[in-house]
Nucleic acid binder design. Structure first.
Length: 196
DNA sequence: TATGGGATTGTCT
DNA sequence: GACAATCCCATAA
């Protein structure tokens, strides 16, 4: 039986835009009492606080909610958006509110459990092709806020080789003026599992 | 305590 | 394409 190991901590010690690319093809894993679910990351977005009007940490806004982004990289920043939970990987140096949003996965293991959580009538694509969908499939919740992503039960692991990477503007931030156009969204060009 | 808005999704037109 | 669902959080008073 194959054992999945969390990635080394040093993986998270790179600039946010580099990390956003490096995360493509990696495996995101969540273990619960119900079982283990994982998926290969195929789409990410970078948020770089001080200069990024679309980021929650814009102008270093430091609150209870954004606090984890000011800490060391490699931890989970989860928050609730309308009726859904979204998952980010904290990046950047201590004191810098930067993070990478995980927007889409390609299902890997635990697909039965994904259907159980999302609804059996859903199509396979609808399990993980959006930031709110993948958290539900993996069982990631607001309570995972601040968890280390290099330890069980919620972690990043080595994945598989990917083809070319596509780059473009981020999604869902139309009120963010000039930041709307920053090319900080990255996805696996040939993947069927990206959002939208 | 009250208020306004949002890094989404699903449904309806 | 438009909009409702539904709720957390930051801000102001």
């Amino acid at each position: 039986m194959m054992v999945i190991q969390p990635i080394n901590y040093s993986f998270f010690q790179q600039p946010t835009l580099d990390l956003a690319r490096a995360l493509l093809g990696k495996l995101l894993v969540k273990e619960t009492e119900l079982g283990t679910v994982s998926g290969w990351i195929v789409e990410t977005e970078a948020y770089i606080g001080p200069e990024d009007r679309a980021a929650h940490g814009f102008e270093n806004r430091r609150t209870k909610r954004t606090e984890v982004m000011f800490g060391p990289p490699g931890y989970a920043y989860t928050y609730v958006m309308h009726t859904h939970c979204l998952m980010n990987v904290v990046s950047g140096e201590i004191g810098c509110p930067e993070a990478v949003l995980i927007r889409a996965l390609e299902p890997c293991c635990g697909i039965d459990l994904m259907y159980q959580r999302r609804g059996k009538e859903k199509k396979e694509l609808a399990l993980t092709n959006g930031p709110g969908k993948l958290t539900k499939s993996l069982g990631i919740v607001k309570g995972d806020y601040g968890r280390a992503l290099f330890e069980y039960p919620l972690f990043i692991a080595e994945g598989k080789e990917i083809g070319s990477i596509a780059v473009g503007p981020r999604i869902g931030i139309h009120n963010s003026r000039e930041a709307v156009h920053y090319p900080w969204r990255f996805w696996v060009k040939d993947s069927r599992f990206v959002s939208k």
